[in-house]
Amino acid sequence: MSLVSIRDVRKSFGPNEVLKGVSLDIAKGDAVAIIGRSGSGKSTLLRCINGLETYQSGSIVADGIEVAGANTNLRELRRHVGMVFQQFNLFPHLTAAENVMLAPTVVNKVSKAEARATAAEVLAKVGLSEKMDAYPSELSGGQQQRVAIARSLAMRPKVLLCDEITSALDPELVNEVLRVVEQLAREGMTLILVTHEMRFARDVGTKLVFMHHGKVHEEGAPKEVFAAPRTPELQQFVGQVG
């Protein structure tokens, strides 16, 4: 059974239909890379999965919870579905460790000591043990993004959504973040990544999804899809981004 199941989802902003019937199944342990042109609806799809956006029809079931159900407890859903953003969105008034500890202590009512131990563990995992007590403004972009990943990991999510998490970084900082994500994928974390890093999508992804005009235009095993794109749109896209 799939961990995230998306069925014929349609979403409009006013008259502008952005998702035109998207269906997608994501199994536990998948690392799904979503690629596509700007405006094709990648971010919108990702944001629908954790309820940051609502959709007009279709259904999304994540970890057994219908996202847009009448009685859906979004809080319960979001405890199991983490999200990392392009702009990091760290809380600037809290240190790295406090950023990571906030949700476990406030939402899961874990003790400060236990949360701090978890923070130490997940920050070590992203290679930032020495930066526990640094404020976001004292960290580089790459470090901030790794703190943001650690902050999501502290909630022990079943799925992690990543929306172009390296796009705001200087080129020399991209790899340190990608390495962390690659490590997560190898450990079996279920990942849904919107990315412009084609090489990463091909090498790390277990599944590739090409979105075009609000639809899943092509999907399959990354290496095969990249080697032999079936549709002219994907051929053109792969040709452009190289």
Binding site: L52, E76, F85, F91, A103, V106, V107, R151
Partner: peptide, 27 residues
């Protein structure tokens, strides 16, 4: 306060009151 602060704290499962209390009002 930037919208990203609301979205990040929502995604961490904080309720509206918790977002205000721990993320938005301190800033």
């Amino acid at each position: 306060i930037p919208k990203g602060q609301w979205e990040a704290s929502s995604s961490l499962a904080l309720s509206y009151i918790e977002q205000m209390r721990y993320v938005i009002l301190p800033q």
